[in-house]
Design a protein around this nucleic acid. Structure first.
Lengths: 199, 199
DNA sequence: TCACATTGTAAGCAAATACTTGCATTTACT
DNA sequence: AGTAAATGCAAGTATTTGCTTACAATGTGA
């Protein structure tokens, strides 16, 4: 199925802004990449900024990043955290372009900044809630849930960032490997069990 | 002591490129912020790109990021890792502007890209060496050093990135707190001991 | 077929930008 | 004092950029 004119423009704009920054991405080049005449951009979105703002609105409403905790949780540390990481990282991946743009253009799109900067906090709070409940259920020995949730957040965010920006390292940074190795080690540390095998 | 003309120009350029990107930072504004006539930029650095390239060369030679492992290591897990994190994060902080620029302007300054992208790998390898030796010395039970080093890297990098870019969260993200809480929890997980206290 | 919406074409404009040139002024050093 | 280097000043140029206007071509649904 063919993309609408608006969608082609939005996608081309996102690509170019990601590559060259907002100022570096010219309307002529956006139009060329979208295979559209330059005036069409302005007819649809008013001005250059309007294109990116439309992209932000579109991508932020399509899928919010709140992981549905109540459903799908089976109160098994490994199963649950693996699932949560998978969902979270997948959704981050979908939003990767916008996240990278928000890093590049910090301050230019306040709405985007707000949206992006809220993500880690929400994630941390959700994880804290989950840990708290697991402790109450007696599934894990008690621990400081805030510190653990912060570490879990750093782990996830560090993985995402290094994977997104430092491709040389990314050769063997698949999501599955991350979950089965790195997340697994973190999980072990919460259970007070001996660490992962040495081979 | 007063800065030299070159230094004022370089610092102003770094500030502005960090704020507005390379294309968005105009030579007029750089000159104004450096309290220097615009022509002086070109007389010293040839063209706009030359300013940033000079900044890269200057800041990358002043202090390389290789942590001196052989010295200062006392083969105590907590003391050593705390020291390493402190040194590493402090040096990252010194280079923060360049790191953020390399994120903003990925591809524009290959030399910078190369320098930045090499940091995590070096860090990981150094940590792996340290873990390996600690195991050989019998100071810690054996574990998979690669996974542990990767997690340690993610922890450090995630902390740095979230602290650098998401200020709202940064209120209570001091380096000391990070070391005493988050790094401490990681250390505990390697020693096979019960996790941190719940209060 | 007719009306209307969408897109293309051509031309251009006002502003900004990187960079240059020629010359005056200041600063530093002997 | 005098010389040379560093910096300022004024003016300008060629190009690019965001955006506009006027009009023709194409498609689409009644």
């Amino acid at each position: 199925m063919t993309q609408s004119t608006q969608d082609r423009i939005i996608n081309a704009a996102i690509e170019l802004v990601k590559e060259k920054g907002f100022v570096g991405a010219t309307t002529r080049e956006i139009a060329k990449r979208a295979q559209v005449n330059e005036v069409t951009l302005f007819r649809h979105f008013g001005n250059k900024k309007g294109i990116i703002e439309a992209a932000i609105e579109k991508l932020s409403f399509v899928n919010s990043l709140s992981v549905s905790l109540s459903e799908d949780v089976v109160w098994d540390l490994t199963k649950d955290l693996s699932m949560i990481v998978k969902i979270y990282q997948t959704k981050l991946e979908e939003k990767r372009d916008l996240i990278l743009i928000s890093f590049k253009e910090a301050g230019r799109f306040p709405e985007l900044d707000q949206m992006i900067s809220g993500l880690p906090m929400k994630y941390k709070e959700m994880i804290m809630d989950y840990f708290q409940t697991m402790i109450q259920k007696g599934k894990v020995p008690p621990f400081n849930v805030e510190i653990a949730a912060t570490n879990f957040l750093f782990l996830n965010f560090g993985y995402f960032m290094l994977k997104s920006r430092l491709n040389p390292l990314a050769e063997d940074m698949s999501l599955d490997k991350f979950i089965n190795q790195n997340v697994a080690q973190f999980i072990d540390s919460l259970q007070g069990e001996p660490s992962i095998n040495s081979d």
